[in-house]
Nucleic acid binder design. Structure first.
Lengths: 188, 188, 188, 188
DNA sequence: TATGAATGAGCTTTCATTCAT
DNA sequence: TATGAATGAAAGCTCATTCAT
């Protein structure tokens, strides 16, 4: 008997990401996903319970991957950690355009479970921790941590697409600019 | 012969907005829009060429309404104009939640025409003008105006939802915090 | 605007009956029903909520039509009413073969609602009433009316198909035989 | 190499019977049958050529088992043999509810081969023989044997389900009533 | 203009069957 | 033989759009 192939699940998830980027969440069809992933339509249902479950799982994985890759506090000096995070964030957005489109399309869609929404929020904790540390050291403004986290998280995400297509040195400049803007905004 | 009734077109547009807020762009059906607007399905096609055209037009109107209501530079002192704009922006987001959901859902969808996207960008000009003025007066950082405009536009939009449900004094505090963050970020 | 056409609903119901006769309940597809009725697939859903509802409604109508046409007690002498009913029953089965196949296929299917089953049972009341009358007049055996009703109802239904294809005089003979068998079985 | 296991074939047939009782012929899926039988889907195809063949074979076996168990003429006095048969029949129906549902669902379905239908009819011969014997002894009416056989076969089958849930003494009473009704119907 | 019945393409999903192991 | 992953052809149903009224 053929054994379940985790690669295939990955292929399907990636195909979904690419399809949403190309035709949007509203235009997404399971058949197109399957074709793109190089499997039969029915195979999607071997790995995922249905379209909803597929999208839900993909959302969670994407959020988690992002959190793991970007939102890390290495415990070093605040300013350095802050800058490093911002720069990694911009890189992530540029390198994972499809992921970002997908997350924004899912945000207000009926596909998203309340539970998944909660789960996804957990990934933001390291960011909050970093900001708390900064507040404790009086390097950052003494305002609601949730507000600051949202500021940072959303601002970088929204600005990052501007970096697309920039030549290397301008790209570097852009990253530093973003880091500066955010730091100036939050610093005490 | 009954004449085309502008009220009806408005009803349909508003119903679309409300539907998208409730079921998302992916769950939107013309029939549900018609029912919500209190007209027959066919009537939607009397006022709009099709679903795509309806969404496209609604996007444009929404963007323009927003620009007119929020992104105005009254020519006064930079800092004051800046703060006034930020505060009006938060108010707008809170009072027009459906509009915001709609715009974010449309942003990366295939429904959006390149042309409409351009048209919509025009509304940002007053914002750019304000920032240029601030740069000329050396009150703001000397960085790319487009970058700054995006920063301001996206940051306030992303943060504003946090204000939902806040008691009046906290709401006021929130608005001021947002204005401060943005000013500190951009000021020279 | 086109107005809802009750004829169309009838066509769909009849087409369903014919399809079930030809391909069985398990082989029934909405598309085939629509094609047979001369309407588009979607039209079926204009008149019926879904396949289940279509079958459920059809079952009820069929049972009721049968009850109205066959299970009537005209109040005359028991034996005569009894015989008349039996003969009408055989005629009905022969003339409405598709209906009978449909009812037998539905009987143990998951399509049948408990509620519909109850509703359908109501049609048997006139039969029970006739039997009660016979028992009161001591012309029939004094056994459970429900048992007698089931006996009569099921026996004639099961035997009737034997009449198919019989030449007229044999057909008449068959009807009388069935009437005699049933009468002899139940008479005191 | 493991050898074909007759137990497994039996399990699959029994599982099919139970599934049809629970979800009907229209709701039957090979996967559900396999799961219920405790084997893999593919295994069903080791023992049966396909779904159709499975149902066809099951139908034949069921009919034959029934014929062997119920429709036997032990050669004793007509009336006694007749009564014994009727009583055994009721018992069979009560004890093998799933079989009966299955046979009724198959009766008018496209799954049934003409050949199988013929094969199944052979089982009715002992019943016909008994009736012939009764006619020869002038104990039974002189009418078409096929008609009488159908009468007996169908009537008992249709009435038997009424016995379900009856307390023992009522159950006994019911069996005798059925035997009496049938005898009175057919006796000369 | 306004209606909503009618359409049929296309959607998600199921499922009989095959096949690699 | 036994498995269950993989397949793809339908199935039921929805919905953007058209059209008769």
């Amino acid at each position: 008997m053929r054994t379940k192939d985790e690669t295939k699940a990955q292929d399907i998830l990636q195909a979904t990401l690419d399809e949403v980027r190309d035709v949007g969440l509203a235009g997404l069809s399971v058949e197109a996903v399957a074709r793109r992933a190089g499997v039969a339509t029915g195979t999607v249902y071997v790995y995922f319970k249905g379209k909803d479950a597929l999208l839900d799982q993909l959302y969670l994985r994407t959020k988690q991957k992002f959190a793991t890759q970007v939102l890390r506090d290495d415990g070093g000096p605040i300013r350095a950690a802050f800058t490093r995070m911002t720069i990694a964030y911009v890189d992530y957005v540029i390198e994972n355009a499809a992921e970002l489109v997908f997350m924004s399309q899912m945000a207000n869609s009926p596909y998203l479970t309340a539970e998944t929404r909660e789960q996804a929020a957990i990934g933001l904790r390291p960011l909050a921790a970093l900001l708390e540390r900064g507040k404790a050291e009086h390097l950052l403004k003494d305002i609601d941590t949730g507000w600051m986290a949202t500021f940072l998280y959303e601002t970088v995400k929204s600005m990052a697409p501007l970096a697309r297509g920039l030549p290397p040195e301008r790209y570097r400049e852009f990253q530093e600019t973003v880091a500066t803007l955010c730091w100036d905004a939050l610093k005490a």
